[in-house]
């Protein structure tokens, strides 16, 4: 619904769009316009949680690379792909199972279960890394979210962790990244908040892949055991406590809230439809199950 005006450029709309930028949800007071739009657009308010559920719909905040038409086309493509497969809500720390078709094993599918240790990039380039320990061998696979060879993405356990990335699991004891391949998906209530798993992992002794002591990690318990005085000191030297006050840096690395609302209002109706469809399918499935047993 929301996309319709932008997709079909009608002359009456054009007059409004050319000179005044249509900010659908401005914080500024605009009494006249509000009255005009109130009937149409109140239904299109995307929930504020969308920026966490669908982070890849926000473009790269680098100003030099931005272009409204490119971003719009990219979002349309993303929605087209999402209409084919269900890309669920997940976070770093969630356990996923990805089923994809493999050119090296034609006619078969490959399924990989693992914990999401990193999510990065935006738009059609969005990707994530899954990690698991299979046969006592740590394995990681990088998946692109909008890769058309991916057949299914299931969330087996939806939860968050204390850090933005879990790359330190590579240096942690293997039990923290071991997950059963035949895990059953855990059912969560509708509307329940995503639980935060506050588990703290134990690292192996040095050498490590990165200097974890410099990254202010919250999900590691024994980082202090392996540090010498010199490392502690250098870590302290590299601290940047002023960065949280650096408003310009924050501004450059994020999309302003107004713009976020604009973007999500554009894709809201389709995403919402897909969510409803997903719920309906779930109910159908749960209804079918007892008949199967009987």
């Amino acid at each position: 619904m929301m996309l319709a005006p932008s997709r079909l450029v009608t002359p009456s709309l054009l007059r409004q769009t050319v000179f005044t930028r249509v900010v659908t949800f401005s914080t500024k007071a605009a009494p006249k316009e509000k009255e005009q739009y109130s009937n149409k657009q109140t239904t299109n308010v995307a929930p504020t949680t969308y920026r966490f559920i669908y982070p890849e719909f926000l473009p790269d905040p680098k100003v030099e690379w931005r272009n409204p038409i490119r971003e719009k086309l990219e979002r349309l493509d993303m929605i087209d792909r999402r209409s084919q497969i269900d890309i669920p809500e997940f976070y770093v720390g969630s356990i996923l199972a990805v089923t994809s078709s493999d050119p090296h094993a034609a006619g078969k599918v490959s399924r990989f279960v693992g914990i999401c240790i990193q999510r990065e990039r935006c738009g059609l380039r969005a990707r994530f890394i899954l990690r698991n320990v299979v046969d006592e061998q740590g394995v990681e696979v990088l998946y692109e979210m909008y890769d058309p060879t991916i057949q299914k993405i299931e969330v087996l356990r939806l939860e968050k962790r204390l850090d933005d990335h879990l790359l330190y699991l590579r240096d942690a004891l293997p039990e923290y990244s071991t997950f059963d391949t035949n895990m059953e998906p855990e059912v969560m209530e509708d509307g329940a908040p995503v639980p935060v798993n506050d588990i703290q992992v134990r690292l192996r002794p040095r050498p490590w892949l990165e200097r974890w002591e410099r990254q202010n990690l919250k999900g590691v318990s024994n980082i202090d055991e392996y540090l010498t005085d010199k490392r502690r000191r250098t870590a302290k030297e590299h601290e940047k406590p002023w960065e949280k006050y650096d408003l310009m840096k924050q501004y450059r690395s994020t999309i302003p809230e107004e713009e976020q609302k604009e973007i999500y209002a554009e894709v809201y109706s389709q995403l919402h439809q897909m969510e409803l469809q997903r719920k309906r399918n779930k109910r159908k499935r749960s209804f079918v199950k007892p008949t199967k047993l009987a």
């Binding site: 493509d77 087209d80 792909r81 084919q84 094993a105 034609a106 006619g107 058309p148 060879t149 991916i150």
Partner: peptide, 14 residues
């Protein structure tokens, strides 16, 4: 080119 509206790509054995 794969159209995003199309079905997921699968590989058939030769």
């Amino acid at each position: 080119v794969h159209n995003f509206k199309d079905e997921t790509i699968t590989f058939q054995p030769e």
